[in-house]
Structure formats: structure tokens, C-alpha cells
Amino acid sequence: MADTDLYAPGVAREPGLKDYFDLLKPRVMSLVVFTALAGLLVAPQSVHPMVGFTAILFVAIGAGASGALNMWWDADIDEVMRRTARRPIPDGRVPASDALALGLGLSGLSVIMVGLAANLLAAALLAFTIFFYAVVYSMWLKRWTPQNIVIGGAAGAFPPMIGWAIATGGVSIESICMFMLIFLWTPPHFWALALFMKDDYSNAGVPMLTVTHGHRSTRRHIFVYTLVLAAFAIGMGFTSIGGPIYLSVAVVMNAIFCKGAFDILRRDRAAADADGFAVEKSFFKFSLLYLFLHFGALLGDAALRSAGLWGGF
């Protein structure tokens, strides 16, 4: 009997725990933990640390579960794209059926645990987020429309709203603002990635804007969306969760982000090919710092308020 007969179909060896952990998209989970925690901590009410810890942990696990369901559904696309070819299913480390089972199991567990630890609204928001990412985005939008990541970006925007709901039990204008910040940030972030992924998306048959409308149109879209994002992000500084730290960070970061978007707008494919998409890559990397610093600044202002050093505009 050959060694491969011992394993499930489609895998080359016995999967380890790390292979299953990779199904949960750990880097996305870390972003979810950070933004959900920010939503929890900037809220006017506080929760017991154990309740907050458990709720945020299971929000992260819920996000990971939706990542596993996404990898199960998109295994055929991931196999073709260089960026995703090393994921556990196309790499032959985990059978697709295991990803489905893990995704469904952890989805149910995470929603129940958030409901028990915090409240039903937070659990319902998490359930909707998982459904939106796994079904609406992965199964429907992604292969159908170039607006896929514009609408699908909502899935990634829910965590701070869930964090806020864990603390307050409700939804308010402030939590909607945090949702909108990530929602508006997502298109420029992913379109910059799509520009330097070159032919990955077209080879996989995914109708990204770069495939359906070309690079010229994508560069215009990045610029316009960045301007809208910048106006919103700076305006958010004048809400009750904003403050001097957020406003200072927002002004500086958005000025740099708009400059980056303008540089992308001015370039053409030949210029980008010549320097290996250097401007697009640095814009993409900066977009991660952009989001991190905006939520970090919200936390800074929350600390100022709780110390009595800032009373709001």
C-alpha cells in the first residue's frame, strides 16, 4: 500500500493543526480583532473584561470560519492565482470537505458564544457578517460583478460595529461611521492590489474592475473613491468618538493617501510595468497602515475622554 492511500482524497499528507489554522485566514483575523476591539473600547459603556475577551475571541473565530467557507468555495479560483495557490486546499494540505465542516462548525459555535457572552444583537450581526462574506460575497458577487469588492467590503466593515454592539447592545451613528470608514477604504485597497496582480484575476475568471474595465478606469476609480474616503474619514473626527488625536492622524494620513491615489491616476500601464508597480504596491501597503492608525487614533481619543482630558467638540 502506498503512503498516499492513507490520506483523504486531494491531500498529500496527514493535515496538521497549523494547516487547519491557516484555513481561518489568521492575518484577516488579526485585523478583525483590532477593529472589533476598537469598536468595543470607544463605546460609551464598558463590559467586564472576561465578557469582552470572550466576545472578541469568538468574533475573531467567526471571521475565521467565514474565511474557511470562502476557501472551500473558492478552491478552484485559489488554485489558479499565484497569490492564493499556497492556501491549504489548493496546496493539498487539507481536503475541501474538512474546510466546509470546520467553517460551518466554527460559524455556529462563534455565533452562540457571542450571544451567550454579550447579547443577541452582537450575535445576529456576527451571523449576518459570516453569511454576507461566505454567501453574498464569495458565492454570488465575486464571480458576477466588478462591484464585487465594493459591496462585499461590507463584510470586513462589520467587526467594529459588532464590538460596539457587544458593549452597548445597540447600533448608533458612531458605529455606522466606523463601518463606513472600512467600507469606503476597501475598494481603493483591493483595486491597488488588483493592479499589480496583473493577470491573476483574468486567468481565474474573476470579473475584477481591472479585468472588465481595464487599468485606466481602475486608476480613476481608486482616485475618486479615495477622495470620498478622505472626506468621510476627516469628517468622522467631529463625531462623538473623534477628537484631537484622530483628527490630526486623519488629516495627515488622508493627505498622503490622496497623494498616493493621485500618483496612481497619473501613471499608465507602461510606467507601472517599468518600475514593477512600485507606486501601486506602496499605496497598498500604506492602506494597511492607514486603517490601523485611524482605529488606533480612535482608541487614543477614547483614552483621553476616559482620563477627562477631552470632552468632545
Binding site: 503512503d3 490520506y7 496527514e14 493535515p15 496538521g16 493543526l17 472576561m50 457572552a117
Partner: peptide
């Protein structure tokens, strides 16, 4: 396959023990 399964089972055991502690603490 045995060493790999053993390490996976130990990992799952630790995760379950942590889960029990979290439920208890909560």
C-alpha cells in the same frame, strides 16, 4: 502519520481545555 496525528490530537486537547476554562470563567 502517527506523529502528525499525535501532535494534532494534543493541540485539539489543549484547545478544548482552553474552551472549557473560558466557559467556566464566563
Amino acid at each position: 502519520i502517527h506523529t502528525r496525528r499525535k501532535s494534532r490530537n494534543v493541540g485539539v486537547g489543549l484547545i478544548l481545555a482552553t474552551f472549557a476554562l473560558i466557559v467556566f470563567g464566563l
